[in-house]
């Protein structure tokens, strides 16, 4: 499994006079956690939005399983097997865990059964999905608003993997989490990788990145400035690459 699953080559994007991405390139393989690191304004969010289909790139190429693809909408991304867990999670606090996971794609009965939602099936599939990634939530019929931050993150991830995507993009999954919850989410990321998925992790937290990433890609001012296996990085070299303090890192 050495071929790249998702590959980005020289992607650029400008908003009017502001250049968000100049020449960004990176790739992710199956069963690999790739971390995108970079300061604010480095272009991480723009890159993620392009991959999830929220916006389209001005130039450059995106390949999925070797084939050039165009991701024009979130549905295109989902069809390819790319799912994104946004930083704000996009959960509904007033719905329970099961309804959140199936929101917008509830299995339902035929018209002569009144389009009734197949709740028992949803509950079992939810339990299976949670178990497959080792998440323990006591009850799946409590409103989302009653769960902790870590549990909410896990439910959002669970929703993303329901369609069995090949690539999961996690945007700042550990921001605003406590120590125990953070470990819970990092374990989850490792399990997604062990299931053979490609994981793209965006994070400000260098400790987290160094802990779970197989490869770390550093973006600076819209350009890829470094791309090395996780073991070759230290916190110090990572900070230098992100801030550009040691110019010549790549030269």
């Amino acid at each position: 499994m050495n071929a790249s699953l998702l590959e980005v080559r020289d992607v650029a994007k400008s908003y009017g006079a502001v250049t968000a991405l100049k020449r960004a390139s990176f790739s992710v393989r199956s069963g690999e956690v790739v971390a995108l690191a970079g300061d604010n304004g480095a272009g991480k969010s723009t890159l993620i939005k392009i991959l999830s289909g929220s916006i389209s790139a001005d130039s450059g190429e995106v390949r999925f399983a070797g084939e050039p693809v165009s991701i024009g909408s979130p549905n295109d991304a989902a069809r390819l097997g790319i799912q994104t867990v946004y930083q704000d999670l996009a959960l509904c606090d007033n719905l329970d865990v099961v309804d959140n996971i199936f929101l917008g794609r509830e299995p339902r009965g035929p018209w002569w059964r009144g389009f009734r939602v197949r709740r028992p099936r949803m509950e079992r599939l939810t339990a299976d999905a949670l178990a497959s990634v080792g998440i323990r939530i006591q009850r799946v019929d409590v409103p989302m608003g009653h769960l902790s931050g870590g549990q909410r993150q896990c439910v959002a991830v669970c929703r993303a993997i329901l369609g069995d995507p090949k690539v999961v993009i996690l945007d700042e999954p550990t921001a605003a989490l406590g120590v125990a919850q953070r470990r819970e989410v990092l374990d989850l990321i490792v399990r997604l990788r062990d299931q053979g998925r490609g994981v793209i992790l965006i994070s400000h937290d260098l400790v987290d990145i160094l802990k779970v990433a197989d490869r770390i890609v550093v973006l600076r001012l819209g350009e890829t400035v470094a791309d090395k296996p996780g073991a070759e990085w230290t916190e110090h070299t990572l900070v230098s690459a992100i801030t550009g303090a040691t110019a010549g890192e790549q030269r």
Partner: peptide
């Protein structure tokens, strides 16, 4: 579900399609 989802988080509902 869609009605309650919109009430709970309109942006989340939109992103859920």
């Amino acid at each position: 579900r869609q009605i309650y989802a919109i009430g709970g988080n309109p942006e989340g509902a939109r992103r859920a399609g």
